[in-house]
Design a protein around this nucleic acid. Sequence first.
DNA 1: ACGATGTTTCGGGAAATAGCGAAATGACCT
DNA 2: AGGTCATTTCGCTATTTCCCGAAACATCGT
Lengths: 129, 129
Amino acid sequence: MTFEPLRPLVDTLKVLAHPVRLRILALLHGGELCVCEVAEVLGLAPSTVSEHLTGLRRTGLVREWKVGRWVHVALADEAATRPLLEALWPLMAGAEAELSRDRAQARALRCDPCDPVACPPSRTLQEHA
Amino acid sequence: MTFEPLRPLVDTLKVLAHPVRLRILALLHGGELCVCEVAEVLGLAPSTVSEHLTGLRRTGLVREWKVGRWVHVALADEAATRPLLEALWPLMAGAEAELSRDRAQARALRCDPCDPVACPPSRTLQEHA
DNA sequence: ACGATGTTTCGGGAAATAGCGAAATGACCT
DNA sequence: AGGTCATTTCGCTATTTCCCGAAACATCGT
């Protein structure tokens, strides 16, 4: 039972219906990140995160662009899916503790120049602020 | 990767992420129906429809109650999922033609006393209007 | 040119999902 | 009590999803 006319909406909902992808969206709600930072915060293999991001990009929920050898990711604010996301934030309130912990960890990664792996100097200098 | 705190929202989104279940919700947006009418309109086996409805009920999107030997279904208007549904209707606009055809067929089933199978007399008398 | 690092693609195995028909259940009617 | 009809539960198969590690790309730095 495909029922083609609903396909785009169903695809979007399928993409939203996964805890990891919701976490990624909440994470990006705090600002753009690069793929490896997302993987680090979520504790998942980079390939896994990459695949989740592919889904989010395919349905227009996030946008990605290359910066040096990194790929940056952010919410696609101009998306037709805007109202859906707006309806979603309040419903994620029950996980706010965990989600803001994710965001804090992302901030720490981005701002800590002491960890050359997570935050190589070139990036630290260029993209901060 | 379970990430428990998001589980209720994820469950709801999973249930929404299926063309048949979206069709059912749109169908019920036009008024309550009994399970066999839903099955008839959708052209699916009653057992299949029953399983879809179980999911919708489990996540609080619809409510069901018995009327004689039928089970009636309607949107659960008081649900916490209200804002989500409201955000959803506009996004189903692309399928409006098909969905209103569904609703028309449901109305026809409910109102046609000539078809004793789809619309047994006892029900026609009791529940009309 | 080479090596290191971030990312994506690919192959595979475990788990969840979707659909159906058959059988079981519950309610009505005679 | 027996029969009929609406519904649900069960058993099954086919398909899809999820996650990973290995391998393939791509880009930077030396």
